[in-house]
Each structure stands twice: as C-alpha cells, then as structure tokens.
Write a protein that binds this DNA or RNA. Structure first.
Lengths: 200, 200
DNA sequence: ATTCTTATTGTTATTTTTACACTTACAACA
DNA sequence: TGTTGTAAGTGTAAAAATAACAATAAGAAT
C-alpha cells in the first residue's frame, strides 16, 4: 500500500496505481507500477475488475482498471521509488479506511483470490522454488481462512500430480525434517486453465 | 450482433456498444445499449473484461469495458433502433470475422459463460418462468457443449434444492407430459454467490 | 537419555459420481 | 380402438472422492 502525499485523501493509505499513457497497454501499465515499487518483473498478474463510478474521484472522472498479482514477499527488494513513495506491506487484518473506493477494490481482490484458491492450484507465484507440503498447506489455509486436514490435503495435492518431490530435506530444524517439493510448472499451468475445478 | 454502417470495418458484424458519457456509470451505460436494442430492462448483467490494447481501434485509443448478459430470446421485442441498426441474433457456430478485436471479446464471454455454468447454477435468466427438467438440461448441454445423463442430471439438480416442482404438466405433447418447475429465486441467488461450487 | 516439535503415514465410514435400461403417458395414425 | 412413435420418468450397483480420525518417526535442544 502507498501513503498519499497530496489532496484529495492526503495521508490516506491507497492501493498503488498510475495513469495509463495514451500509447500504453493496460497490463504493461500495471506491471510498471509493480516494478517501480518492488523491482519485480514477469510476475503472475491478472485483471481484476474495472471500477468506473462517476463520483469515485472527487476531482474528475477516473476509471480504474484494477490488476492483482501474487508476489513472494521475500523476493521483493524495495526500490528508491518505494521509499520515496512511503510504501508499506499490510496484513489484510490491518487495512484501515483507504482513499477513494480502494476498500471496495481490495474486497474484490480478496474475493477473487479466495475463489481462485478454491478452484485452481495456487502457490507457484507465492512460494520459494523449493517448499514443504506444510508451507503449501499453510498458504491455502491463510487464503481460505480455514484449517485443512494434514493428511487429506497431502493426498489431494499429490493426486493432482503438479508436484515433484525432491531428494532434499530441511536442515537444522528442531523436529523431523520435511521433504522439499517443487511445482511441475507445465502441469501446474495446465490445471490453471479454464475447465478444471480444484475444489479445496 | 450489429452490422456496422461506417468505416472502419464498414459492413462488418460487431458486438453492440457505445461510448460512455462523462457523467455516466459503466453498468448503466451497458444496460442502456441492451435496452435500446431489445427493450429489456433489469436483466442479469455482469462485467466481463476490459480490453485496452493501444491499437485495437485504428482511429484512436478506445478502451472497452465489456459486459455480458443472459437473455431469454423469447422476451426480446426488437425496437425501432434495432431495426435501424441492423441487429441480428447469431448462433455461436455462425460467428464470422468480426470488427476490431470483437472475436476476442466474444471468446472471453463464452469462456466465462462455460465456467459460470460449470460452477454456478444457471437458467433463471434464460428459461421461461415455468420449465421442464429437460429444458434445463438442454440449456446446460448447449452451454457446456456436452451431453449430460438424464437421471444423473435430475438427481444433481434436485439435490441443489433450488427448484420448486409445480402441480402442472405439459399439454398437447405427443408423449408423456413433463412436469413444470420454477426456480426458488432466493435459494438460486444464494448459490450464485461466491464460495459455492456447483460442478456440473 | 529425555523432551519438544513437526513430519509422515493408513483405515474406515460416508458421500458423490458414474454408467446403464426399462416402463409410462400421451398423441397420432391406421 | 389398438398400434406406433416419442419423450418423461425412475433405480441400482460399482467406483471414486471425501471426511474424520491418531500413532509413530526424526531431529534438535536440554
């Protein structure tokens, strides 16, 4: 999130964004906002929804085409622009009243993310290359806001056949070391296409 | 579909649309296109996707916020505007090359409709108030482009508990008369909300 | 050697899905 | 009036998916 430094909604928190240039496609415009603040490129990004109420910006007609992205926060390297712009990462539970209709945009994004996690595989964009099944399960639990049975989750995700088990385990953990897995990227993307229901 | 009467793409078929006025919200703008051509109001309508490629319109930058709707064609009363505008209803199989990127828009709509039929109940907007289970099944078969087993479909749809059986049957049909059903509108809409998977 | 913590594994009961065929009701026709 | 054609309506069994549930294993810390 970004803290605004000008009216209207001065000092309010807002979702980062920018105007789209006359000769700029929509998705590159969104990508460039992401890159300028996080340094990230070639990240999963999907159009969310277009918000166009006449009065959503007090100073004129602004139509916002919102995109959402899934980023692994550990890969983010804050850029000079992000320091200058007063960027912060907020937990969903700590979201205050935002500028403009941005709470509505965020609500739509959360709804979409839940639906996505409910019906499609998720995690490729959010986890390190190597991860344990517990990490993957906790990701789902976080997004879906419910706990999942360890054994049933394991069985279900393995049967999807999108994981490759590695010959490598955790080290220096004060408990039994967990095996690492990685995604079979091609199979992962196949299941992400339309027509397949995950049902987690 | 509408036949264009001006350059560019003169005489090409296109998806109906209009410019959004400076003081007009997006959804009313879409509704008003629908109403002017079909007379229909208060119809299910959902934002589909926003198309914004720089070069999608040869004469300038046009960003299209596409909406799709489900209409019962028997309720449509062609308006004077629709005659003037050379409106026609086309089967999906008869779609020619369209103006601009409209084939792409249509493909997105079909994809969305299939996903919707696959995961949510459908039919309230498309069928007469009273309908038979065969009609409902054939609607699903048409959208999903596959045949569904009569008995299994019946069992599944009944268990969803969104139908109300009427004490009325078909008349003057040269076979056993089918019972009419109607939707339990409230339950239907509950299941249409996020978080529920239909899986047909 | 004991303790603490998380990983890993299997079974059973229940529910859901799939595949599949015969009888019934009605109109049309001979 | 009975024969034919057509779509409606119905049941069952096998297979698959889901849900609920607890004990053992591995490694670090003490």
């Amino acid at each position: 999130m970004i803290k605004r430094g000008a009216e209207p909604f001065n000092n309010f928190i807002a979702i980062p964004g920018d105007l789209v240039a006359e000769d700029e496609d929509l998705e590159p415009a969104a990508s460039s906002v992401l890159k300028s603040l996080t340094g990230l490129e070639n990240i999963f990004m999907e159009q969310l929804y277009t918000f166009g109420k006449v009065d959503r910006h007090p100073q004129g007609r602004i139509i916002t085409v919102a995109y959402y992205t899934l980023v692994n926060i550990e890969e983010v390297t804050p850029t000079p622009a992000s320091f200058a712009a007063d960027i912060q990462w907020l937990s969903f539970d700590d979201i205050p009243q935002l500028a403009f209709d941005h709470n509505e945009i965020l609500a739509k994004a959360i709804e979409r993310l839940k639906w996505r996690a409910h019906t499609k595989p998720i995690g490729l964009e959010l986890l390190p290359v190597k991860f344990t099944l517990s990490q993957l399960r906790k990701l789902y639990e976080g997004i879906l806001e419910k706990t999942l049975d360890k054994r049933n989750f394991r069985r279900k995700i393995i049967k999807m056949d999108i994981l490759i088990a590695l010959d490598e385990k955790q080290k220096n953990v004060a408990h039994k070391a967990a095996r690492f897995y990685k995604f079979d990227v091609e199979k992962y993307h196949n299941l992400s296409k339309e027509g397949y229901i995950f049902s987690m």
